[in-house]
Design a protein around this nucleic acid. Structure first.
Length: 553
RNA sequence: GCACUCGUAGCCUAGCUAGGAUAAGGCGCCGGCCUUCUAAGCCGGAGACCGGGGGUUCAAAUCCCCCCGGGUGCGCCA
């Protein structure tokens, strides 16, 4: 509905420009101050030069010539801007009559593969991996809602030194007790340090070579080790509402010969060169100084070669979006260049910066990290304490359940609200401080609305109201923006946009809620319809962010 | 050293792709609001030379150049 208002304003402006014989390329913005209307354009500034007049003068001349009809109540000139005001009487009726469960959902669009998480199976997800997973999952949800046919992949590096070290360690000390991924980390950490101390790298290489050669015993060992660790990782993801459609094993591309074929094609590309038996690809043409090494001196392939084969396959399925950590920036450029040489399209990359600890970076191998499980556990515990503080006498089982839903949501929200390109320093007191405008703020608005609906039995809803209060206008306007926000977030691949909108919408509802009573008021039916529209949109927003819906908290 | 990226009140962030109205929020601080749908809320206040310096423009947080600071990476690791 807001989009329609925008289109009406745009059409009127363009029609006027045509009548006046002037050229405009209108850009509309939503003013931060309500006084300046609901939509504003600065075309008069652009026209000032060609018309040789002051912007204010042009605005004064143009604004009165636009007849306010339809969703437009008024058009005003103000300091060189032309401001459009919504006709809320018309707007709200059309909006409330048109809204349904699918409000904001996009039409069917093409297939897109979203790859995220893809952590090595050598331990539990830490908070850095979690950032990747949450950004990726939220993006996948948004793209799906926007109409894309989304398939989510986890690329599993089962051919790396890390996996081999875990296999080596399992042979030597078996498997310790505890959650599978954490147990795997214990093996990995111990194995890493012993291998280094005793200089046993050759044993790891040998294990890896046997796996590449598909020796039955090695294959069984690798698969068992990887699957085992993965069960733990999947538990963590599942608790956060994150799931992958496919787990794509790196080894598969060696096995099916596609790595070999990619290497073959690249070696004949004219970008290839040999150095001491190794195969290097010169990427200076792509602005990358460093050669890309795809085959070692001993003839074995490197990670990037296998990832090229992986993407050659993936890009045949549809378009792709990869959520990768900042340590993979160079690889993403090499991959793009490599695929181009092969004549293939490249995936898009969402690169997120790292989360570090106050004392420095995290490392699974060194055992220096905060696991996602630990963060979720602590956050849920904090939520439980908050409930006990606020809701004395609540049944403990109920409180535990609500705390779980709040904690998990808070973890997701605190990650997704921050733009991926910002590096973060993790601090416990900040992570556990439920900021006023965080997930609980969003959940609380939803719970308040739900409570009203549950008490509204027998109340007739009304879609129309002659006059609206400021808070009602703000709520309607914010609600009506949802479809544009979905498109914005989907097209720009910015999940954080949805988080910002969740805050705006919750804020608008809380203000509305405090400004006037719904049940028993003179506008009961109308306000009830607004509340219901709010729960519809807020429900969708929460689904997109993976925030749990509570009817009580 | 080179490449990419970030730098907005004491702290955390939005705005930067498509330059325009007094730079928008939160935490913290100060002051109000619970006999009425849950105060994890609402309303108000103080607090910013948008890292620094140049440039382009009628107009720069936003575009360009240089510098400073944080992060990430830099051929046979993944």
């Amino acid at each position: 509905m807001f989009g329609k208002f925008r289109r009406e304003a745009e059409e009127k402006l363009l029609a006027l420009a045509e009548r006046e014989g002037i050229l405009v390329d209108p850009v509309f913005t939503i003013p931060t101050v309500p006084r300046f209307g609901d939509l504003s354009t600065n075309v008069c500034f652009q026209l000032a030069k060609t018309l040789k007049k002051q912007p204010a003068e042009i605005a004064e001349m143009l604004a009165p010539k636009i007849k306010p009809t339809g969703l437009i109540a008024d058009v005003q000139a103000e300091a060189g801007y032309i401001n459009f005001y919504i006709n809320y009487t018309v707007f709200v009726k059309e909006f409330l009559e048109g809204i349904g469960q699918d409000f904001g959902r996009g039409k069917k669009r093409e297939k897109v593969i979203v790859e995220h998480t893809s952590a090595n199976p050598d331990g539990p997800l830490h908070i850095g991996h979690l950032r990747n997973a949450v950004i990726g999952d939220t993006l996948a949800r948004i793209l799906r809602f926007a109409g894309f046919d989304v398939e989510v992949h986890y690329y599993l590096n089962d051919m790396g030194k890390q996996a081999a070290k875990v296999v080596w360690g399992r042979r030597r000390y078996g498997t310790p007790e505890g959650k599978a991924d954490h147990a795997t980390a214990k093996i990995y950490i111990r194995a890493s340090s012993e291998i280094e101390e005793q200089g046993l790298d050759f044993e790891v290489s040998e294990i890896l070579t046997r796996y590449e050669a598909r020796e039955t015993k090695a294959v069984a060992e690798f698969e068992e080790a990887v699957e085992y660790c993965l069960t733990g990782i999947k538990q963590t993801l599942s608790r956060l509402g994150i799931h992958h459609d496919k787990f794509v094993w790196e080894s598969r591309f060696v096995l099916d010969g596609s790595v070999e074929s990619v290497i073959e094609r690249l070696s004949k590309s004219g970008f290839a060169k040999r150095e001491e038996g190794a195969l290097l690809i010169d990427l200076t043409k792509y602005g990358i100084e460093k050669d890309m090494v795809i085959v070692r001196g001993d003839g074995t392939s490197l990670y990037i070669a296998r990832d090229l084969a992986h993407h050659a396959w993936k890009m045949s399925l549809g378009r792709a979006v990869n959520v990768w950590g900042a340590d993979h920036k160079l690889v993403s450029m090499q991959l793009t260049a490599g695929l181009d040489i092969l004549g293939l399209p490249a995936p898009e990359f969402i690169i997120h910066e790292f989360i570090s600890l106050p004392q420095g970076g995290m490392s699974t191998r060194k055992g220096v990290f905060i696991s996602a499980d630990e963060l979720v556990d602590e956050t849920v515990e904090k939520a439980f304490e908050e409930i006990e503080l606020r809701r004395t006498g609540m049944d403990e089982t109920d409180a535990r359940g609500i705390a779980e839903d709040i904690g998990v949501s808070a973890v997701r929200f605190n990650i997704v609200r921050i733009a991926p390109e910002k590096s973060m320093v993790f601090k416990w007191d900040e992570a556990l401080d439920f900021e006023r405008q965080g997930a609980p703020f969003v959940q609380y608005a939803f719970a308040r609305a739900k409570k009203i609906l549950s008490k509204a039995e027998g109340v007739e809803k009304a879609t129309a109201s002659e006059t609206l209060g400021d808070e009602e206008k703000r709520l309607v306007k914010t609600l009506s923006r949802f479809p544009e926000v979905v498109n914005d977030a989907a097209d720009s691949r910015k999940a954080s946009i949805m988080a910002g909108y969740a805050i705006d919408l919750s804020n608008a509802f809380h203000s509305f809620y405090m400004s006037a009573k719904v049940l028993g008021s003179e506008k009961e039916g109308f306000r009830l319809a607004l509340v219901e529209a709010f729960t519809t949109v807020q429900g969708s927003v929460m689904d997109l962010l993976g925030i749990k819906q509570l009817s009580e908290m």
